[in-house]
Design a binder for these strands. Sequence first.
DNA 1: GACGATTTAGACAAGGCTGTCTAAATTTGT
DNA 2: ACAAATTTAGACAGCCTTGTCTAAATCGTC
Lengths: 229, 229
Amino acid sequence: MKTSVSPDTFPPRGHEAKRVSIVEAAASVFCREGFAGANIDLISAEAGVSRQTVYNHHGDKERLFIAVVRDLTERCNAGIFATIATFPDQPVDLEADLIGFAVRLNRNCICSRDGKFLRKLIQAEGERYPELFAEWLEQGPGRTLPAIAARFARLAHGGHLAIDDPDVAARQFLGLVNAELQTTFMLGGTPREEDVLRSATNGVRTFLRAFGARRNVAVGERHPVLAEA
Amino acid sequence: MKTSVSPDTFPPRGHEAKRVSIVEAAASVFCREGFAGANIDLISAEAGVSRQTVYNHHGDKERLFIAVVRDLTERCNAGIFATIATFPDQPVDLEADLIGFAVRLNRNCICSRDGKFLRKLIQAEGERYPELFAEWLEQGPGRTLPAIAARFARLAHGGHLAIDDPDVAARQFLGLVNAELQTTFMLGGTPREEDVLRSATNGVRTFLRAFGARRNVAVGERHPVLAEA
DNA sequence: GACGATTTAGACAAGGCTGTCTAAATTTGT
DNA sequence: ACAAATTTAGACAGCCTTGTCTAAATCGTC
């Protein structure tokens, strides 16, 4: 018997494939019905697996739930960091580049299936599992927000933006580019691509009105323009 | 027997008092446990009432849930409109006045007990009751957002702000002043008063950097709004 | 104090769910 | 093709929950 955490075969087959499909089905059902409303029979049916197999893999409902949250957190984090890697450090057209970044962030991380599921589970069950979601807070926002802030700090340092507090600016950036999607998110919906683009465009424009390095530079300020390595 | 929707006596006594305490207890339990996890025995105990009384008043669990959402929507709307009435139409110190407005909005409407309950119920059960929450969308954001936008439009018309699209500006204002409270909201927590103030202050400052009717503000300069009155 | 309306405690049936168990069937590695 | 590991279907006990019912107690009002 192989322990098989391994990427020997992709997509995974047999035993491991079942584990994956169980966690995926469970994510969907927990998200749709909540922890209490979720039903193991429904999860196993949706996973195409017998109920006993669910118990064989995960022990009980609560441990399955925890596995689901950990899995979603991990995958969402990976998506966010991959997207942060596309942040425009040497912007050509700052407005267009930031809009692109905001749209990618939305599409790949916030509106994605995993993102939606994780968001809903945190909102619905966060208070019941304080340790679990403290872990999420630490691994998620606790690492991604500073990473985004660091990118804005670098843009500011390069003279492309006039930012005092990069951490606040990062949070405000996210608040702005999602400003028009709030009610859709509240209701658990997925905004249309065109709405994501509009919200990002309006948000970035406002962000740049507030933080864009202006032509008439104040006293002691480094001259912004394009020159850097 | 009195039909008694009336404000004959306040606080209500007898029959009506029980109806109120049932709905309040139900709001608390539904919010904490979700619809499926909520337990009528627990609700009746928390309301200080027998289980049969709950059924006498509301029929069944689902109708009780709907009554709770309607009640919360109504009370939250009342709170928001009361707060909108304090919007600074003739600002003395625009920054301070907008910060005050944002803080009141948070304290009275968003962080209030009712606000928190309603938010959580919408997030958790919104997809299961589309008509009910379409109603909420219409009565809530559908009326409050335009009301706030109208106030910003008036400030713009009076030359206090430079706003193109008041509707977008209103949504961005809300996104900005809540930018630093997002994760706390996600987890169902109530932010500390000092965090509300800090987020509002930073948010309003950024908002005014973007939309303040400016006298040539340059990068490092402090905002002009302060010196008035 | 008396009357009708309301509330209460408790029992109850019907149904759903979790988690366990078994024995048979199937898959996997060699 | 064989043997071990895994999966399956189904039955099952135990528990919890909803919603109903009843008879007694309490409340509110005249």
